[in-house]
Design a protein around this nucleic acid. Structure first.
Lengths: 324, 324
DNA sequence: CCGAACATCTGGAACGTTCCAGTCCTCCTC
DNA sequence: GAGGAGGACTGGAACGTTCCAGATGTTCGG
């Protein structure tokens, strides 16, 4: 099949030549400059369309020093929590005329760091990092050349890097209070994480238990130790995220227990999974749309000249469903 | 906090100046050109490192006419089938020294088309499209300026665009044959799709049923009409994908039926969902790692000068699990 | 000791934009 | 009818690379 070969793509100069004007004028016309007469503008646009002209972003970026691109880094595409944040960042970016390019690290820490570098080299105007796996030194290095904001689960603040996070301790407290309100006392926490967010949730759980006078019942277990909890008479399990909550759910159902009649199960994150599973999970929702919006606002703030670090903390919300 | 302000990033010229050599030599040294003496190379590298030099990809791309970047377009981040393909494309790209930038369309057809354009403008050297939602005219337009390959569910071949697909008809036949082999005769198909892949699976189902002499039992229903099937005594349901299979599963379990004892359920795609759900889904697996590898190979083939269209079709594999 | 061959390095012209400083006009004002 | 004021347009210099055609030594065979 005689397909068009990789012909050199037409440039401003080509358009200018066939339209019989200077390249400067073509540039102005294409960008809608008011100083171009209507007739020539129309002619130029027609020619550009006809020869299939498309501007070269690399040339534009090189000249202007900015790309109108936002980089978003996530650790894994398989993490619905992260991908939902990406979508919200993207919506917010579009509002202010920025486009998003996405990079991910497939669970590999080194690869993630490479991606961050790469996006910087590409010339993005700002970076949104939705992963706590990026090493601090990589973040600070990145922050030296462009605005960086961490979104979601964050570690300790990194100098020069803004952040938008969720109050995980409060979220955990919401769960405990809810379960206590329903009369549960033996409430266990299931977690496999030693990451900052996981630790914060655990802390929130322990503190809330103590506040409720249930300090003696505090019990933290790994996901694969659920059987032990159930054997010991725990009637409610708060898992560190929806995925682990589902594992608990499966385990309980396998033992012939009814949820929530025999045992209550609560998750965290309100991912799609929470809605899909049966019974649907009670879980904690973070304001993901707001997160994206705030992240973009922080970046544009930096681009506008702000130099002090800003850390925003959003309030989580409990979503009560069938599981507890 | 006195954070570093957006200082102008150092360029080749800066490195050259502080190292006391010409910018050309710096360029050569950084790219590991053998014609640079070891001592100067080391010195230059040290200086570059010290001043925090990073090459500008836009300048490089502009000059060289290629970016070493591959664009990958998917319709939605929430589709595990697509994101798994992305990962495999990425692995394959890395093998040949290419990086991947990802764009998605959040289920919006117009946005998807914009993304395709945008990646082209960015200067990617090739495009992998993992979505059947991109309009043909957008694809052909894109194919005029860079190599494009469609991966996964494809519509009819588009001129100038290569493809790597799965034989959906054969996949559906595998399912039917498997169920027939287990003694089922009243096998229904559940589908809500009018997209090419869905239609192919339906066709495969109908043909296989007829070949098995079960033409009289052919029955196709929408996901929300599952109850009708069960009422009519269908004992096996082949769903168009894993998500719809899960819906069928839920519906059956809600009616108190046992799976697979009372009714068998089979999905398609072998997404994570298939493994997670209970009972685990029997489903059809596509060779996703191979898909990425083939896609990249087709692109490099085009970059190497090939001009005729190539369409590769991969064989699906049945994965038998607990559900049927 | 001359020239050639080689290793090492340099200057400048591109690449496709944007943008600044002009250059022409035409039209208005006094 | 001279003197702008603006409107419409142009030329060329950047932006940070790469790469080609040299320039400058150095070494070595004869």
């Amino acid at each position: 099949m005689p397909t068009a070969s990789p012909r050199p793509r037409p440039t401003l100069r080509d358009v200018a030549a066939t339209a019989g004007v200077s390249k400067s004028l073509v540039s102005l016309a294409l960008r809608g400059d008011p100083g171009v007469s209507e007739s020539t503008r129309d002619r130029i646009l027609a020619v550009a369309e006809q020869v299939g002209y498309r501007p070269s972003l690399s040339a534009r970026t090189l000249k202007q020093g900015r790309s109108m691109l936002l980089g978003v880094v996530i650790s894994s595409l398989e993490n619905p929590y992260q991908t939902e944040i990406v979508a919200s960042v993207e919506d917010a970016a579009e509002q202010v005329g920025l486009s998003v390019v996405l990079a991910h690290g497939s669970r590999d820490r080194g690869r993630l760091a490479d991606r961050v570098q790469q996006l910087g080299d590409l010339g993005v105007d700002g970076l949104v990092v939705v992963s706590s796996w990026v090493p601090d030194e990589v973040l600070t290095a990145a922050a030296r050349r462009l605005p960086v904001v961490m979104v979601g689960r964050t570690a300790d603040p990194v100098a020069g890097v803004d952040s938008v996070t969720n109050d995980d301790e409060q979220g955990a407290a919401l769960v405990v209070d809810h379960l206590v309100g329903r009369g549960y006392e033996r409430i266990a926490h299931v977690t496999s994480s030693t990451r900052p967010a996981g630790l914060a949730r655990r802390r929130g759980y322990e503190d809330a238990m103590r506040r409720a006078g249930l300090g003696d019942h505090v019990r933290v277990a790994a996901p694969d130790a659920v059987d032990g909890l159930l054997d010991d008479g725990y009637r409610a399990v708060f898992a560190r995220n929806d995925v682990e909550a589902c594992d608990v759910l499966d385990r309980a159902l396998d033992r012939g227990l009814r949820v929530p009649d025999d045992v209550a199960v609560v998750g965290y994150d309100d991912t799609l999974l929470a809605r899909r599973v049966r019974p649907a999970l009670t879980t904690v929702q973070q304001q993901r749309e707001v997160m994206g919006e705030r992240a973009v606002a922080l970046l544009t703030g930096r681009l506008g000249g702000r130099t002090d670090d800003v850390h925003e903390v959003l309030e989580p919300r409990l979503v009560v469903r069938a599981s507890g």
